[in-house]
Amino acid sequence: MIEIKKLHHKIDGNEILRDINLTLQEGSVMGLVGINGAGKTTLLRLISGVYTAAEGEILIDGVGVGDERARESLFFLPDDPYYTAHTTGNSLFKLYKTFYPHMSREVFLSHMAGFKLDEKKPIRNFSKGMKRQLFVALALAVKPKYLLLDEAFDGLDPLARLSFKKAINKAVEEEGMSVIISSHSLRELEDFCDSYALIDKMTVTSSGDIAEKINSFCKFQLAFTEEFEESVFSGLPYVSLEKSGRFVRIVLKGEAKRMLSALEELNPVIVEEMPMDFEELFIHEVEERGHNK
Protein backbone atom coordinates (compact mmCIF):
# COMPACT_ATOMS: atom_id res chain seq x y z
CA MET A 1 0.00 0.00 0.00
CA ILE A 2 1.22 3.52 -0.78
CA GLU A 3 0.19 6.08 1.80
CA ILE A 4 0.67 9.80 1.34
CA LYS A 5 0.15 11.81 4.49
CA LYS A 6 -0.04 15.60 4.83
CA LEU A 7 2.29 16.10 1.91
CA HIS A 8 3.40 19.64 1.13
CA HIS A 9 5.94 20.56 -1.52
CA LYS A 10 7.53 23.77 -2.68
CA ILE A 11 9.87 24.41 -5.59
CA ASP A 12 11.96 27.58 -5.43
CA GLY A 13 9.65 28.94 -2.75
CA ASN A 14 6.51 28.38 -4.83
CA GLU A 15 3.93 26.05 -3.34
CA ILE A 16 3.29 23.17 -5.76
CA LEU A 17 1.38 20.70 -3.61
CA ARG A 18 -0.52 21.32 -0.39
CA ASP A 19 -1.85 18.89 2.19
CA ILE A 20 -2.04 15.83 -0.05
CA ASN A 21 -3.53 12.77 1.62
CA LEU A 22 -3.96 9.72 -0.59
CA THR A 23 -3.86 5.95 -0.35
CA LEU A 24 -3.23 3.45 -3.12
CA GLN A 25 -4.53 0.02 -2.20
CA GLU A 26 -2.71 -3.09 -3.36
CA GLY A 27 -3.83 -4.35 -6.76
CA SER A 28 -5.51 -1.05 -7.52
CA VAL A 29 -5.06 1.08 -10.64
CA MET A 30 -5.41 4.75 -9.86
CA GLY A 31 -5.77 7.49 -12.44
CA LEU A 32 -4.15 10.76 -11.49
CA VAL A 33 -5.98 13.56 -13.20
CA GLY A 34 -5.79 17.32 -13.24
CA ILE A 35 -5.37 20.25 -15.56
CA ASN A 36 -1.91 21.16 -16.94
CA GLY A 37 0.39 22.34 -14.18
CA ALA A 38 -1.79 20.89 -11.43
CA GLY A 39 1.17 19.03 -9.92
CA LYS A 40 0.61 15.46 -11.17
CA THR A 41 4.21 14.96 -12.35
CA THR A 42 5.58 16.52 -9.17
CA LEU A 43 3.45 14.15 -7.09
CA LEU A 44 4.71 11.14 -9.07
CA ARG A 45 8.31 12.35 -8.65
CA LEU A 46 7.71 12.66 -4.91
CA ILE A 47 6.18 9.20 -4.66
CA SER A 48 9.08 7.70 -6.61
CA GLY A 49 11.70 9.44 -4.47
CA VAL A 50 13.07 11.61 -7.28
CA TYR A 51 12.03 14.69 -5.28
CA THR A 52 12.21 14.93 -1.53
CA ALA A 53 9.05 16.27 0.06
CA ALA A 54 9.32 19.52 1.99
CA GLU A 55 6.78 18.26 4.53
CA GLY A 56 4.70 15.17 5.18
CA GLU A 57 5.45 11.55 4.46
CA ILE A 58 5.14 8.98 1.71
CA LEU A 59 5.11 5.39 2.90
CA ILE A 60 5.58 2.38 0.66
CA ASP A 61 4.34 -0.62 2.63
CA GLY A 62 5.01 1.35 5.79
CA VAL A 63 8.57 2.39 4.87
CA GLY A 64 9.45 5.99 3.94
CA VAL A 65 10.26 6.44 0.24
CA GLY A 66 13.64 7.95 1.17
CA ASP A 67 14.70 4.47 2.26
CA GLU A 68 16.10 2.51 -0.67
CA ARG A 69 14.31 -0.65 0.53
CA ALA A 70 10.98 1.08 -0.11
CA ARG A 71 12.02 1.93 -3.65
CA GLU A 72 12.91 -1.68 -4.44
CA SER A 73 9.22 -2.31 -5.09
CA LEU A 74 8.74 0.81 -7.24
CA PHE A 75 9.14 1.54 -10.90
CA PHE A 76 8.67 5.07 -12.22
CA LEU A 77 8.22 5.63 -15.93
CA PRO A 78 8.56 9.37 -16.55
CA ASP A 79 6.89 11.21 -19.39
CA ASP A 80 10.15 11.59 -21.32
CA PRO A 81 12.77 9.10 -20.12
CA TYR A 82 16.39 9.97 -20.73
CA TYR A 83 18.59 8.15 -23.22
CA THR A 84 21.84 8.86 -25.02
CA ALA A 85 22.68 8.49 -28.70
CA HIS A 86 23.95 4.96 -28.06
CA THR A 87 21.24 3.71 -25.70
CA THR A 88 19.63 0.48 -26.81
CA GLY A 89 17.04 -1.76 -25.19
CA ASN A 90 19.84 -4.08 -24.16
CA SER A 91 21.92 -1.33 -22.56
CA LEU A 92 18.88 -0.15 -20.60
CA PHE A 93 18.19 -3.71 -19.51
CA LYS A 94 21.76 -3.93 -18.21
CA LEU A 95 21.33 -0.71 -16.22
CA TYR A 96 18.00 -1.75 -14.69
CA LYS A 97 19.29 -5.24 -13.94
CA THR A 98 21.93 -3.58 -11.73
CA PHE A 99 19.21 -2.34 -9.42
CA TYR A 100 16.70 -5.16 -9.85
CA PRO A 101 18.73 -8.40 -9.93
CA HIS A 102 15.56 -10.50 -10.15
CA MET A 103 14.61 -8.76 -13.41
CA SER A 104 13.66 -11.30 -16.07
CA ARG A 105 15.39 -11.21 -19.45
CA GLU A 106 12.77 -13.61 -20.87
CA VAL A 107 9.89 -11.35 -19.86
CA PHE A 108 11.73 -8.33 -21.28
CA LEU A 109 12.40 -10.04 -24.60
CA SER A 110 8.89 -11.43 -24.88
CA HIS A 111 7.38 -7.95 -24.39
CA MET A 112 9.90 -6.45 -26.84
CA ALA A 113 8.84 -9.08 -29.37
CA GLY A 114 5.18 -8.39 -28.56
CA PHE A 115 5.71 -4.68 -29.19
CA LYS A 116 7.76 -5.56 -32.32
CA LEU A 117 10.82 -3.71 -31.04
CA ASP A 118 14.47 -4.60 -31.60
CA GLU A 119 16.43 -4.56 -28.34
CA LYS A 120 19.71 -4.11 -30.21
CA LYS A 121 18.76 -0.94 -32.07
CA PRO A 122 19.59 2.53 -30.72
CA ILE A 123 16.41 4.00 -29.31
CA ARG A 124 17.16 7.45 -30.74
CA ASN A 125 15.52 6.13 -33.90
CA PHE A 126 12.36 5.00 -32.06
CA SER A 127 9.15 7.04 -32.11
CA LYS A 128 7.83 8.35 -28.78
CA GLY A 129 5.33 5.52 -28.61
CA MET A 130 8.03 2.91 -29.30
CA LYS A 131 10.24 4.36 -26.56
CA ARG A 132 7.33 4.19 -24.16
CA GLN A 133 6.70 0.57 -25.10
CA LEU A 134 10.37 -0.21 -24.52
CA PHE A 135 10.22 1.27 -21.02
CA VAL A 136 6.99 -0.59 -20.33
CA ALA A 137 8.78 -3.81 -21.35
CA LEU A 138 11.52 -2.93 -18.86
CA ALA A 139 8.95 -2.17 -16.16
CA LEU A 140 7.15 -5.45 -16.73
CA ALA A 141 10.44 -7.36 -16.65
CA VAL A 142 11.22 -5.76 -13.28
CA LYS A 143 7.78 -6.90 -12.03
CA PRO A 144 7.47 -4.05 -9.56
CA LYS A 145 4.82 -4.10 -6.89
CA TYR A 146 4.04 -0.46 -7.67
CA LEU A 147 4.22 1.06 -11.13
CA LEU A 148 4.09 4.83 -11.58
CA LEU A 149 3.35 6.05 -15.09
CA ASP A 150 3.48 9.69 -16.12
CA GLU A 151 1.43 10.77 -19.14
CA ALA A 152 1.20 7.11 -20.00
CA PHE A 153 -0.77 7.28 -23.24
CA ASP A 154 1.06 10.25 -24.68
CA GLY A 155 2.41 9.50 -28.16
CA LEU A 156 0.79 6.07 -28.43
CA ASP A 157 -1.36 5.25 -31.43
CA PRO A 158 -4.67 3.41 -30.79
CA LEU A 159 -3.13 -0.01 -31.41
CA ALA A 160 -0.15 0.72 -29.20
CA ARG A 161 -2.52 1.99 -26.49
CA LEU A 162 -4.41 -1.26 -26.66
CA SER A 163 -1.32 -3.44 -26.36
CA PHE A 164 0.04 -1.18 -23.64
CA LYS A 165 -3.17 -1.46 -21.62
CA LYS A 166 -3.36 -5.20 -22.17
CA ALA A 167 0.19 -5.67 -20.90
CA ILE A 168 -0.41 -3.56 -17.79
CA ASN A 169 -3.77 -5.19 -17.10
CA LYS A 170 -2.19 -8.61 -17.33
CA ALA A 171 0.49 -7.62 -14.81
CA VAL A 172 -2.16 -6.21 -12.48
CA GLU A 173 -4.22 -9.40 -12.68
CA GLU A 174 -1.38 -11.91 -12.60
CA GLU A 175 1.21 -10.20 -10.42
CA GLY A 176 -1.11 -8.11 -8.24
CA MET A 177 0.74 -4.99 -9.35
CA SER A 178 -0.63 -1.60 -8.27
CA VAL A 179 -0.48 1.29 -10.69
CA ILE A 180 -0.70 5.07 -10.48
CA ILE A 181 -1.12 6.55 -13.91
CA SER A 182 -1.33 10.20 -14.84
CA SER A 183 -2.90 11.07 -18.14
CA HIS A 184 -5.05 13.57 -19.94
CA SER A 185 -6.73 10.74 -21.87
CA LEU A 186 -9.61 10.40 -19.46
CA ARG A 187 -11.53 8.00 -21.66
CA GLU A 188 -8.53 5.65 -21.52
CA LEU A 189 -8.31 6.02 -17.76
CA GLU A 190 -11.99 5.23 -17.36
CA ASP A 191 -11.48 1.83 -19.01
CA PHE A 192 -8.24 1.19 -17.26
CA CYS A 193 -8.47 2.48 -13.69
CA ASP A 194 -10.63 1.49 -10.76
CA SER A 195 -9.93 4.60 -8.73
CA TYR A 196 -8.92 8.18 -9.36
CA ALA A 197 -7.49 11.25 -7.67
CA LEU A 198 -8.18 14.71 -9.00
CA ILE A 199 -5.48 17.26 -8.27
CA ASP A 200 -6.55 20.84 -8.48
CA LYS A 201 -5.25 24.02 -6.93
CA MET A 202 -2.30 22.13 -5.44
CA THR A 203 -4.31 19.53 -3.56
CA VAL A 204 -6.39 16.38 -4.06
CA THR A 205 -9.89 17.79 -4.37
CA SER A 206 -11.63 14.54 -5.13
CA SER A 207 -10.72 10.89 -5.08
CA GLY A 208 -12.28 7.44 -4.86
CA ASP A 209 -13.84 4.74 -6.99
CA ILE A 210 -14.38 5.85 -10.60
CA ALA A 211 -17.57 3.86 -11.17
CA GLU A 212 -19.05 5.10 -7.90
CA LYS A 213 -18.19 8.66 -8.79
CA ILE A 214 -19.74 8.35 -12.25
CA ASN A 215 -22.85 6.80 -10.77
CA SER A 216 -23.26 9.69 -8.40
CA PHE A 217 -24.10 11.83 -11.46
CA CYS A 218 -26.62 11.31 -14.24
CA LYS A 219 -27.27 12.91 -17.58
CA PHE A 220 -30.58 13.35 -19.39
CA GLN A 221 -31.79 14.71 -22.67
CA LEU A 222 -35.24 16.27 -22.66
CA ALA A 223 -37.59 17.81 -25.20
CA PHE A 224 -40.53 20.09 -24.38
CA THR A 225 -43.53 21.07 -26.47
CA GLU A 226 -42.71 24.77 -26.24
CA GLU A 227 -39.90 27.13 -25.27
CA PHE A 228 -39.17 27.21 -21.54
CA GLU A 229 -37.12 29.15 -19.02
CA GLU A 230 -34.04 27.64 -17.41
CA SER A 231 -35.51 28.55 -14.06
CA VAL A 232 -37.85 25.54 -14.30
CA PHE A 233 -34.83 23.42 -13.34
CA SER A 234 -33.86 25.61 -10.40
CA GLY A 235 -35.20 23.15 -7.88
CA LEU A 236 -32.98 20.36 -9.22
CA PRO A 237 -29.33 19.69 -8.23
CA TYR A 238 -27.93 20.20 -11.73
CA VAL A 239 -24.23 20.80 -12.45
CA SER A 240 -24.61 21.68 -16.11
CA LEU A 241 -27.38 22.57 -18.45
CA GLU A 242 -27.28 23.07 -22.21
CA LYS A 243 -30.42 24.54 -23.72
CA SER A 244 -31.16 24.69 -27.40
CA GLY A 245 -34.69 25.78 -28.30
CA ARG A 246 -37.11 23.23 -26.90
CA PHE A 247 -34.33 20.77 -26.16
CA VAL A 248 -32.15 20.51 -23.09
CA ARG A 249 -29.26 18.37 -21.96
CA ILE A 250 -28.78 18.33 -18.20
CA VAL A 251 -26.26 16.75 -15.82
CA LEU A 252 -27.55 16.23 -12.29
CA LYS A 253 -25.92 15.19 -9.08
CA GLY A 254 -27.79 12.30 -7.56
CA GLU A 255 -29.27 8.88 -8.22
CA ALA A 256 -30.55 8.52 -11.81
CA LYS A 257 -33.89 6.95 -10.86
CA ARG A 258 -34.77 9.72 -8.40
CA MET A 259 -33.71 12.43 -10.84
CA LEU A 260 -35.76 10.87 -13.64
CA SER A 261 -38.92 11.09 -11.49
CA ALA A 262 -38.14 14.70 -10.70
CA LEU A 263 -37.66 15.53 -14.39
CA GLU A 264 -40.86 13.78 -15.42
CA GLU A 265 -42.75 16.14 -13.17
CA LEU A 266 -41.78 18.93 -15.60
CA ASN A 267 -43.86 17.16 -18.31
CA PRO A 268 -41.28 16.83 -21.06
CA VAL A 269 -42.29 15.24 -24.36
CA ILE A 270 -39.18 13.11 -24.28
CA VAL A 271 -36.85 12.30 -21.43
CA GLU A 272 -33.94 10.02 -22.07
CA GLU A 273 -31.04 9.03 -19.86
CA MET A 274 -27.60 9.33 -21.48
CA PRO A 275 -24.35 7.70 -20.46
CA MET A 276 -22.06 9.80 -18.32
CA ASP A 277 -18.30 9.46 -18.78
CA PHE A 278 -15.26 10.25 -16.68
CA GLU A 279 -14.11 13.05 -18.96
CA GLU A 280 -17.39 14.85 -18.60
CA LEU A 281 -17.24 14.40 -14.88
CA PHE A 282 -13.72 15.81 -14.81
CA ILE A 283 -14.78 18.86 -16.80
CA HIS A 284 -17.65 19.51 -14.40
CA GLU A 285 -15.40 19.06 -11.41
CA VAL A 286 -12.74 21.49 -12.60
CA GLU A 287 -15.26 24.02 -13.89
CA GLU A 288 -17.01 23.94 -10.56
CA ARG A 289 -13.68 24.92 -9.01
CA GLY A 290 -13.49 28.07 -11.06
CA HIS A 291 -11.53 27.00 -14.14
CA ASN A 292 -12.57 28.45 -17.49
CA LYS A 293 -15.58 26.95 -19.19
Binding site: R45, S48, G49, V50, E68, R69, A70, R71, E72, L74, F75, F76, P78, D80, P81, Y82, F99, Y100
Partner: peptide, 15 residues
Protein backbone atom coordinates in the same frame (compact mmCIF):
# COMPACT_ATOMS: atom_id res chain seq x y z
CA UNK B 1 22.94 17.85 -14.60
CA UNK B 2 20.05 16.53 -16.68
CA UNK B 3 16.62 16.46 -15.06
CA UNK B 4 15.32 13.79 -17.43
CA UNK B 5 18.19 11.58 -16.42
CA UNK B 6 17.50 12.17 -12.73
CA UNK B 7 13.89 11.01 -13.21
CA UNK B 8 15.46 7.63 -13.94
CA UNK B 9 18.49 7.61 -11.66
CA UNK B 10 16.86 8.88 -8.47
CA UNK B 11 14.03 6.37 -8.26
CA UNK B 12 16.49 3.48 -8.32
CA UNK B 13 16.75 1.73 -4.96
CA UNK B 14 20.11 3.15 -3.93
CA UNK B 15 20.97 6.01 -1.58
Amino acid sequence: KNRRNLDTLYFFPIR
